[in-house]
Design a binder for these strands. Structure first.
Length: 424
RNA sequence: GGACAGGUGGCCGAGUGGUUGAAGGCACCGGUCUCGAAAACCGGCAUACCGGCAACGGUAUCGAGAGUUCGAAUCUCUCCCUGUCCGCCA
């Protein structure tokens, strides 16, 4: 969410940022309307408060007169009349405020200056690591997974539907091993606080991280209880400190949590959905950081490095892609995607998305810090990244580690977790 | 799920319709005192919005929302949360 004052005073800058996302045309009317509503709103506020001040004065006069045993009928009548005016003005105000709020929630974050303008085609590979394995002769992971008895897609579909996976035997062990490896790495070596969070979240939490109101149809909802299944642990982790003020000395704060993630993926059937590529429920270790504003750019690099470290330990070749403005998510100001190469499907798979949300989520969720010098509370900056999402990692491992005899060799660092160096 | 009791400032805690944004205490910050510290004493210490260059002024906020009233932390209703007991239960 944007600051109203910034919207008013820096409308030009905001429009430029939206232009780089390719959304200026679509969103300009929203900005114009918001600025107009803001003006209306402020003049109404003045009118209301003027009357409230007058009413407060009259009420005290009533109290004084009554205490003195005098009649206060005149004051009471005047106060009543003011009350009626106030009620009228307040309903105008509520209408303007309501429209303004819903408009503000529709405006995406402004991207940072070093984010390239344009759409997906302007995404930039900033670095890569490892050598992608030649694709020839490598079977896709769904074949290997089925042959080795690691993945049971038909029975997953029987239980919950297409896009729900059953991992079996060493496949289930692989899931557990990967989660433990990631959590151990981030908590012991990267300094994150290990966290276990609810996978259901309410509307306020979902709005704080901006899953709502825009993406309601992408989530599973429990309508009787007004709860949603989280699409990522970003939601609970970022809402940990919703409506709180943190001492500056506590920043940065960092949290790592495993959670299952639920995504309806409405409308995305047919494209890259085979096997483990796109599923409705998957496991992920999520990293969230709360940072000082002037540190968030550096923190994004740090966070991305933490996620990369997992891929290095897993010996999976990957590249780091700086998303162009038009491909950057709604709430994000800058995003790096980590893509790992899967030779069996011959594709780079997105396994992590690391973003700096600047104060966009903090403003929505009202997460602030009090500066060490005792000044006014300021919004923190929030960041998050997957570290990492499992199914595609498993796909990459099954394809990358394939041996001529059909077995799968596991990376060194994973072996102590899986208690085996090879899946057969 | 049922019954009862509660939700007041960073914390504790007064306050059942009228200068209560809110007594008092603790914590914290500044000062006096002291060689220094402690104690004591004095002062300060919420957030948001609106107006103003500013000084400052105004409005709102006592779990949330709605209502009654000239006026609500105080009365009514709905909801949320916490505690205790009962029921149910992995």
């Amino acid at each position: 969410m944007h600051d109203l004052r910034a919207l008013r005073e820096q409308a030009v800058e905001l429009r430029a940022a939206l232009r780089r996302r390719g959304q200026e045309q679509a969103l300009a009317p929203i900005i114009d309307r918001a600025v107009q509503l803001d003006g209306d709103r402020r003049s109404t506020i003045q009118a209301v408060e003027e009357r409230k001040a007058a009413r407060n004065t009259l009420s005290q006069e009533v109290a004084r007169k009554k205490k003195a045993g005098q009649s206060a009928d005149e004051e009471q009548a005047g106060s009543r009349a003011l009350g009626e005016e106030i009620a009228t003005l307040e309903s105008e105000l509520a209408a303007a405020q309501g429209e303004l709020d819903s408009l503000l929630l529709q405006l995406p974050n402004a991207v940072l200056a070093d984010v390239p303008a344009g759409g997906e085609e302007s995404n930039t590979v900033v670095r890569s690591w490892g050598e992608p394995r030649a694709a020839s002769g490598v079977a896709p992971h769904w074949e290997v997974g089925e042959k080795l008895g690691l993945i049971d897609l038909p029975r997953g579909a029987k239980i919950a539907g297409s896009g729900f996976i059953v991992f079996r035997g060493a496949g289930a062990g692989l899931v557990r091993g990967l989660l433990n490896l990631m959590l151990d790495l981030h908590t012991r070596e990267h300094g994150y606080e290990e966290t276990w969070v609810p996978v259901l979240a309410n509307r306020a939490a979902m709005t704080g991280t901006s899953q709502l109101p825009k993406f309601e149809e992408d989530m599973y909802a429990l309508s009787t209880d007004e709860l949603f299944l989280i699409p990522t642990a970003e939601v609970p982790l970022t809402n940990l400190y919703r409506e709180e003020i943190l001492p500056e000395a506590e920043l940065p704060k960092s949290f790592a949590a495993y959670s299952p993630c639920f995504r309806r993926e409405a409308g995305s059937h047919g494209k890259d959905t085979r096997g483990l590529l796109r599923v409705h429920e998957f496991d992920k270790v999520e990293l969230v950081r709360y940072a000082l504003p002037d540190r968030s750019a550096a923190e994004l690099e740090l966070l991305t490095g933490h996620a990369e470290r997992v891929l290095q330990l897993l010996e999976l070749p990957y590249r780091v892609v700086l998303l162009a403005a038009g491909d950057t998510g709604f709430a994000s100001a800058k995003t790096y995607d980590l893509e790992v190469f899967a030779p069996g499907v011959g594709k780079w798979l997105e396994v992590s998305s690391c973003s700096n949300f600047t104060d966009f989520q903090a403003r929505r969720a009202d997460i602030r810090y009090r500066p060490a010098d005792g000044g006014k509370p300021r919004f923190v900056h929030t960041l998050n990244g997957s570290g990492l999402a499992l199914p595609r990692i498993i796909a990459a491992l099954l394809e990358h580690g394939q041996q001529p005899d059909g077995s799968v060799l596991l990376p060194e660092a994973l072996r102590s977790y899986t208690r085996t160096d090879r899946l057969t």
